[in-house]
Write a protein that binds this DNA or RNA. Structure first.
Lengths: 132, 132, 132, 132
DNA sequence: GTGGTCTAGACCACT
DNA sequence: GTGGTCTAGACCACC
């Protein structure tokens, strides 16, 4: 599996947020594993044609979320996955995401069965921590 | 089920977006049905203690999305549900939402089974267009 | 109680971190209460003679930590205090802080009794959530 | 009690600072006593898989703080504990550390009693200079 | 008016 | 050479 970042200039979401999202997704899909090294800040800035500060902001956000660990002078690495939030908070967050997802599905007039099918299909592509 | 709008003042999402989201969700849950009348702009502005311009922006966005229709002199109503997007586009949108949802789940270290359970649970609360 | 921010230019800690720390402390001491409004970004930048971006970074950090809530177009406010971390994480964090504190005390050759006295004294100045 | 240095690679604090902190803490806990010999620079560098320059910087900082003394040709030793700072300065430093500690505790929503308990518990593990 | 994003370019700390 | 901080100044979204 290869790992490639890309910027969608016609997307309204902030550049740094696009990068954060893509790294988070790559980790969740198992394309990036704990210990893997991410390209350098300046490297990404040059390749994606964005300002180094923008990449820096993305890196900092990822570090704050515990997705990566940065070691000054050494680089940025995918962190050991662990979640420091309380169970109540975790359930609240995921619950809201699911509801938003289903709200969208209804408005797009997806039939129930189709949503279930797409969901099941996607689930198989992710890397679950329980190995299931 | 009654339908009540409310703004959460310690939520970072823009006021107008909170309103849009709540109306969309109420429709998806079946709390609001096609033809139902929505309170007037100034009514909501007064009740929610929000600038009328903010309500106007929310209504405008809802109308743009085809969720509501305004009939001059009569008020604003929930639209007949229709979706003008192509199948490819619809699948792309929902697919991305589902992936974002699962990305979150993995990072929160939910086990696979638990995600399936929460998802199935939520599905039952929505009003699917095929009546299923 | 008055609330005043100040920058110590001869301190090596980053400017934005100094601001974050001072706001956090003011909240913990009860000098700032939930709902209180913080001076505007530009206001602080002008008063403290630092770049507005530096203040913005401090605000964003405070928001991520859940200390403040920012509402675009309205301003920045002290948030309702709540902690989303798991008990294990909370204990880990506080435990480390206490150990670092005591390590310092030993190296400064404070006698045991004196540390206890200073600690007890400080405790009285803070605003505990259990009201004790 | 044995004394072992280790670097936590997914910790954002600089390597040299981790080493400084661990030596300081070991001294404060009484695991290292005045006169004890510390492994050589190259020994540590090899064991911790760290650049010798990094170890050198840590030693340098420890010596600057008066925690260790290097005797040419003999090695590096834990110094006789002495503190050259004025009382006012010592009080200021410890006071700030305690305040930072309590600020954290309040934000983590620890109840007053719990903080007192954890603090008292930690105090027992340290080696106080008055032997108490 | 509020805060948020991005660019450009300088300087610093760490390995 | 790594990432982190700060400044300066532009533009945008929200209220």
């Amino acid at each position: 599996m290869s790992f490639r970042l890309q910027i969608r200039s016609n997307d309204t979401t902030p550049l740094f947020a696009q990068i954060v999202h893509q790294v988070r997704e790559a980790v969740a899909l198992g394309k990036l594993r704990p210990g893997d090294r991410i390209p350098t800040l300046r490297d990404l800035a040059a390749r994606l044609l964005v300002n180094p500060n923008t990449i820096a902001k993305a890196f900092q956000e990822l570090e704050r979320e515990g997705v990566v660990v940065t070691r000054r002078g050494a680089g940025t690495f995918i962190a050991e996955n662990h979640c420091a939030l309380s169970d109540a908070e975790r359930n609240r967050i995921l619950g809201e995401k699911i509801e938003a997802c289903l709200t969208e599905a209804v408005h797009l007039r997806f039939p129930r069965k189709e949503v279930q099918r797409l969901f099941a299909e996607s689930m198989q592509r992710f890397r679950w921590t329980d190995g299931a």
